[in-house]
Design a protein around this nucleic acid. Structure first.
Lengths: 348, 348
DNA sequence: GACTGGCACTCGACGTCGTCGACTGCTAGC
DNA sequence: GCTAGCAGTCGACGACGTCGAGTGCCAGTC
C-alpha cells in the first residue's frame, strides 16, 4: 500500500490536476494544464505523462474527449505527498479561539466548535465529545421519582452533567436513598470518573440488600454515562452544507449522506477508524468502506485533548473534491483551539 | 379570508386535483380527471369548472398545455373542507404507543417521538419540549467549579435536568455555597417551576450579601432553564427525508430548508405561530411567510400535554405537495401517544 | 340553462441531426 | 526526450420536427 513512486514531473502534473479540478469542478485537460501551470513542457508531453498516470489509476477520464479527474487513489497520493501543512492566518486562529473561549460548559463548547468548524470549512462538521479519563466526579445526586425509580444525576468537574434513570427491583424508602446518596458522595466525589465505578461498587458490596442494588446501578450509570457517554455526545454543525451546489449530482446521494449523518454510531465509528491511521487523518471516497453511500465523500479528522490521555475527535465530512490542505489546516486549528478552551474550562 | 364558496362539483374537482397531484406528482388534466374519478360529467364540463377554479386562484397551470396544479390557496381550501379527520389504524396507534412508553426520561421520550413521527410520515419531524408549568422542582444542586463560578443543576420531577453556569461577582466560600444550597432546597423543592423563581428571590432578599447574589442568579437560572428552556429543547428527526426524491427540484431549495431547520429559534417560532390559528394546525407554502425559503413547504403542527396547561408542540415539515389527511392523522396520533407517555413519566 | 362532442391551437417533451470544440493518441521530426 | 501537428472520438448544444396532452371555444343536444 506504500506510495507509488512518480518522477517529479508526473507528480507535478498530478498535483496540478487535483488543484485544478478542486478549484473549477471540471475535468482538466492537457492544454489548460500546459497553459495555466507553467510546467515548462508542452501539452503533448503532458499527455504522455497523463497516460501513465491513468495507467497507474491515479486519474481517470469521465469519458473520451474529456479531461482527467483525480481518482480516490489520486487524491490519496496528493494528500500523502503534502509536505508542509498549511496554516490558518493568525487572525483566523485568534478569531476562532475568541469564539470558543468563555463557553459556559462542555456541551456548549462542543456545540460552538461544530458551528465554527463548519463555517470555516463550509462542510458538515462533526465533534465527538472527549473521553473523560481525567475528569473527576464532582457530585452525584439521587432523586426519587417513583416508588421503583430513581434518577441519578452525575456532575463532573468540567460542568458536564449526565443523568440516568435507575429502575429498582424493589421499592426503597426515600430515607434509604438519601443515605445511599450520602455514602456515595462521601466515597466517590473527587475521584476520576474512570475509577469511580469500581469504588462505588465496593461501597455497594458492604451495603444492605436494597441499597446495594441501588448503588450497583449507580456504578453502572457512571460507567455508561460519564466514562463512555451515550449517543447524545456528538455534535453536528452545518449539515446544510451537504446540499451545497456543485458537489453532488443526484439528490439521492445527498439523501444518503444525510441518513448516514443521522446515525451517530456510524459517525463515531468513522471518526475512530480514521484516527487509527494517524492523527490528522484523511479518508477518501472508497476508503470509507463499508459505508458505500459515502463513496463520493471524504472526511478529515483530528483528535484533540491534552496529550496522551486525551481523545476526543472532530472532523468534517465533505465531497472527495475538497481542498485538502485548507481543510486539514482548518481542522487542526479548530482542534487546537478546542484544546485551549477545554483547558480553560477544566482548569479554572 | 373566509372560505370561498364553491358549488359541490367544483369542490369535488378541486379535491380530485389535489389528491391526484399529491399521489402522482404530475399536473392533472381534465381528461384523466373525468376518467379516473367518476364525477359523472365529461371532460369538457370539467374544463369549464377548472377555468373557474383557476380564476379563483385555487389551481394553476405550470404552463399552457399542462394540467393543473393546486395553488397554496387550493391546498388551503382542501384542508379546510376536510370534514372528518382520518385516523390511524388501531395497530399503528398501538405500535406507536409501544415505542413511546417506557422511555427513561423526558429527553429520550422526545427524541423517540421525533423519530417515530418522521418514520410515520416520511417527513422531517420536529418535537418541541413542553413548557413545564405543572412541573415541580425536585432539587437544585450547586457545585463550585472555580472561585467565581458555580454550576447550578436543576432537577425536575419529570426527570428533566438543566444546568447553568453562574458567574459570581465575588468569590464565595464553599461553605456558604453549601448553606445556600440547603436553604434553597428547603424553600423551593416541590414547588412548581413557575413559582420557584419568585420564592427563591424571596429567600435571597433575606440573605447576606454574597449569598444573596448567588441566590438571585439561581432564581434567574430556574426561570431561564426550566420555565423556558434554551435552544436545546427541540428535537428534529428524519431530516434526511427533506432530500427525498420527487419533491424539490433545485438543490438550492433543499439547502435552504436545511439551513432553516438548523436554526432552532426559527423552528420554534414556526410551531408557535402555527398553533395560534387552531390546534391541529396546517400552514401551507406562502402562509409560512416571512420564511420565504419555505415557500415550497408546509407544516402540520399539533400541541400535546394535559389539557389546558399543556403546551408542548410537535409537527412535521414537508413539501406543500403532501398528503394532508394522512399527515394530520399521524401528527395527532403521535401527539396523543406522547401525551400518554408523558403522563406515565410524570405520574409514576 | 346545463352539458357534451368536436375542433383548432399551444406548448413542452423527446428524439434526431449536424456543428463545434475539447481532448486524446500517435507519429514524424527536431 | 520533447514537440508540433494531425486524425479521430465524443459530449455539449442548438435547430428542428413530431407527438401528445391539455386547453378554450362553439355549435349542438337534452
Amino acid at each position: 500500500m506504500g506510495l507509488v513512486v512518480l518522477d517529479e514531473r508526473k507528480a507535478a502534473i498530478l498535483k496540478a490536476i487535483v488543484q485544478g479540478y478542486v478549484r473549477d469542478g471540471e475535468p482538466v485537460g492537457s492544454k489548460r494544464l500546459a497553459e495555466d501551470w507553467n510546467l515548462g513542457v508542452s501539452a503533448a508531453t503532458i499527455r504522455a505523462d497523463m497516460a501513465a498516470l491513468e495507467e497507474a489509476e491515479l486519474i481517470a477520464q469521465p469519458h473520451t474527449s474529456a479531461g482527467r479527474v483525480p481518482t480516490d487513489k489520486g487524491y490519496r497520493y496528493f494528500v500523502d505527498s503534502l509536505s508542509e501543512t498549511a496554516q490558518l492566518s493568525v487572525e483566523q486562529r485568534a478569531a476562532l479561539e475568541g469564539l470558543l473561549l468563555g463557553s459556559s460548559d462542555l456541551e456548549e463548547l462542543l456545540r460552538r466548535t461544530s458551528s465554527v468548524l463548519s463555517r470555516l470549512t463550509r462542510f458538515a462538521a462533526v465533534v465527538a465529545a472527549p473521553r473523560l479519563d481525567r475528569t473527576r466526579l464532582r457530585h452525584i445526586e439521587l432523586v426519587t421519582l417513583g416508588p421503583n425509580s430513581v434518577l441519578a444525576v452525575m456532575i463532573a468537574d468540567t460542568g458536564q452533567v449526565e443523568k440516568r434513570m435507575l429502575d429498582l427491583g424493589e421499592a426503597l424508602m426515600d430515607h434509604d436513598v438519601q443515605r445511599a446518596r450520602h455514602a456515595l458522595n462521601e466515597a466517590a466525589a473527587g475521584l476520576r470518573v474512570t475509577d469511580a465505578p469500581d469504588v462505588i461498587a465496593g461501597v455497594a458490596a458492604g451495603a444492605p440488600h436494597g441499597v446495594r442494588e441501588l448503588l450497583e446501578s449507580v456504578a453502572d450509570a457512571v460507567r455508561g454515562g460519564l466514562v463512555s457517554p451515550p449517543g447524545a455526545q456528538i455534535f453536528v454543525g452545518g449539515s446544510a452544507n451537504i446540499a451545497d451546489a456543485g458537489y453532488f449530482e443526484r439528490l439521492e446521494q445527498v439523501r444518503e449522506v444525510y441518513e448516514t449523518l443521522e446515525q451517530q454510531v456510524l459517525v463515531l465509528g468513522l471518526l475512530r477508524a480514521a484516527l487509527e491511521a494517524g492523527d490528522p487523518a484523511v479518508r477518501i471516497g472508497e476508503e470509507l468502506r463499508p459505508l458505500a453511500e459515502l463513496a463520493a465523500c471524504s472526511i478529515v479528522v483530528a483528535s484533540y485533548g491534552a496529550g496522551a490521555d486525551s481523545v476526543g475527535s472532530l472532523g468534517v465530512l465533505g465531497p472527495t473534491r475538497m481542498d485538502y490542505p485548507r481543510t486539514l489546516a482548518a481542522v487542526q486549528a479548530v482542534a487546537s483551539g478546542l484544546e485551549k478552551a477545554l483547558a480553560e474550562l477544566t482548569g479554572s
